[in-house]
Design a protein around this nucleic acid. Structure first.
Lengths: 162, 162
DNA sequence: TATTGTTATACTCTATAACTATA
DNA sequence: TATAGTTATAGAGTATAACAATA
């Protein structure tokens, strides 16, 4: 494992964020996995449940490539959580709707997710918890130092500028 | 982009951690890229610089698969930053040493990394900054709620239990 | 027989390109 | 000609399996 002292780890901001992100993703994945979903499925399904969207609109909302959206919806459809139906006004377009089971799954998943967040943040005293979230928000939003997705020329191939 | 309000984003812990982790990784990658390194190269090189290790020991320290270590060291050797030499006591084993250029690169990279961290955390008031790091450390280390790497049965294939 | 490091290869994820059907 | 969605495929990353040299 990690043989470093707390002092050393405290100075390794990359590690702190990576570990927090990965461990939380693992917990989320495990929790949603119980419901037969992964995190991406949930993101898409929750957005689909919030109103009628086309596949393309959903892809844009969820910051997914349209080909990734195809795979995701194939999965959600096979699981009986969502349905695609042709738009009556433009026969190229597919409208995505959540099924009854899908709507229930979103609600259930939201409960599970809130439980995980509470579980994680619950170990912090109230004030520390507030400051943590304030600080993260400050770093990550607007013109914070971690807001920009500056494309790095050496980085692996990912989705182009969103 | 993200059309959500700050309020909504504040409630999305996964997003906050993922974004922080990814954006910081992008900044780190860009900064280290200037020096011809990626983050993994730096991690391995820094550990190699801290003492003589075999390839296997380095892999364990850096939590990398031994086959990934081969690729990493191939790169570092080609860049003239590290060297492999056979151990005099066990001819199966390769000792990894940093070259003079490699040692300098580690020192330079450390400066660059400290600069990035300072740049990021510098936007926070001193006390908020302290609380943020304390809270992250609490979550991520020891028996914190984000310390465990519980293998998730639905997760994609990654390195086995480390 | 077990272990270190290497090579070959398979698997996952996600994007680009080509295609179908509409507009 | 342009667009929504699909399919086929390629690229990047990282793992497992087979292997060579050595213990």
């Amino acid at each position: 494992m990690d043989t470093r002292t707390d002092e050393e780890i405290r100075g390794d901001l990359s590690y702190l964020f990576d570990k927090a992100s990965q461990a939380l993703a693992a917990r989320m994945g495990a929790a949603l996995g119980e419901l037969g979903m992964n995190v991406r499925d949930y993101c898409v399904l929750a957005k689909a449940a919030s109103g009628e969207r086309t596949q393309g609109e959903l892809a844009e909302l969820a910051l997914l490539d349209k080909t990734t959206m195809v795979v995701t919806l194939d999965h959600l459809e096979k699981a009986g959580l969502a349905q695609r139906s042709p738009s009556p006004v433009d026969r190229r377009v597919r409208i995505v709707r959540t099924t009854e089971a899908g709507g229930a799954a979103v609600a259930e998943a939201r409960g599970v997710i809130d439980g995980v967040y509470e579980d994680v943040l619950g170990v912090l005293p109230d004030e520390q918890r507030t400051v943590l979230l304030d600080a993260l928000l400050r770093l990550v939003t607007h013109d914070g130092p971690l807001s920009a997705v500056e494309p790095n020329p050496h980085a692996p191939r990912r989705k182009r500028g969103v």
